[in-house]
């Protein structure tokens, strides 16, 4: 494995190519941890030297900021920026669009300007530069897959192509939801909703969204965000379809392709 903590890299007198910003979800949530493991397998396959902060990583502060707590956000952000500066980090890749957005758009004003990628963008970059080699024999799948745009990757930062390009390259047969790309419906977790009860209403947002995705008949739902993963999986369970429809991160789909070749 070509990954270790930045402290370990520094102790060896070296620097990795990228810092993988794991995020709280992939650090602690069982399901999201599998995505982190899939992503670093891909990094290893591409020969990328990667590092993590490990215990030195703290929440980017996104949920605090979206909940209106700018003190807590800035407290976390300024401490993270200190840590990132100590290790002279330049390139960061995140598997969580909320971390990605906060690091990319909100840290620069606080003195932390880094080159920040979402993992779909970085994976597409690795494929395009020939470092991540997909088996040449990949044929297009029979089953249909639908990609659910994360708000903070799509509308928030204008990236709609990279995740689709990665999936298509891996032979995935993509279909689109009626509400897709810049008009994709939110999974319901953003804006700190992940950490609170929903306000009273007719329906939960993740149910509304999952029903829309399931109605396309797609047998696999691809996501690019750990919060979407939780919300859509709950939605699929609610519909009683967890035996029929998989919910996978794009990194997991890609790893499957590498393994099965």
């Amino acid at each position: 494995m070509a990954g270790k903590t930045l402290a370990a890299w520094a102790a060896a007198g070296e620097k990795p190519e990228i810092l993988y910003w794991v995020g709280c979800a992939a650090s602690y949530d069982d399901r999201a941890q599998r995505v982190a493991r899939a992503f670093v397998q891909l990094l290893d396959a591409a020969g990328v030297r990667w590092g993590i902060l490990g215990p030195e990583e703290a929440c980017t502060g996104d949920p605090a900021k979206r909940a209106g707590h700018d003190f807590l956000f800035q407290m976390l952000a300024l401490q993270n920026i200190q840590t990132l500066r100590t290790y002279e980090v330049q390139r960061i890749v995140a598997t969580c669009p909320h971390c990605f957005n906060t690091l990319k758009n909100e840290y620069p004003d606080l003195g932390g300007a880094f080159e920040v990628w979402h993992h779909s963008q970085y994976l597409w970059h690795l494929i395009q530069t020939g470092r991540l080699r997909l088996p040449p024999s990949l044929s297009q799948e029979e089953v249909e897959t639908i990609f659910h745009d994360p708000c903070y990757l799509g509308r928030g930062n204008g990236e709609y192509e990279a995740p689709r390009a990665v999936l298509r390259q891996a032979g995935v047969r993509l279909v689109e939801a009626p509400r897709s790309r810049d008009f994709a419906l939110c999974c319901g977790a953003g804006g700190a909703q992940m950490f609170k009860e929903p306000e009273p209403g007719r329906k939960d947002i993740n149910i509304e969204r999952t029903e829309e995705l399931l109605a396309t008949g797609a047998q696999r739902i691809a996501v690019g965000c750990p919060f979407c993963m939780t919300m859509i999986r709950d939605g699929v369970k609610h519909a009683g379809k967890e035996q029929k429809v998989e919910v996978l991160d794009i990194a997991e789909i890609l790893v499957e392709k590498l393994k099965n070749s």
Partner: peptide, 22 residues
């Protein structure tokens, strides 16, 4: 979640030492 972010650096109440367990 705020309290946990302050104490553990994560909205979920897990210790920072376990961050790299995955």
């Amino acid at each position: 979640a705020f309290v946990s972010m302050e104490n553990n650096g994560s909205p979920w109440a897990f210790p920072a030492a376990e961050r790299a367990k995955w």
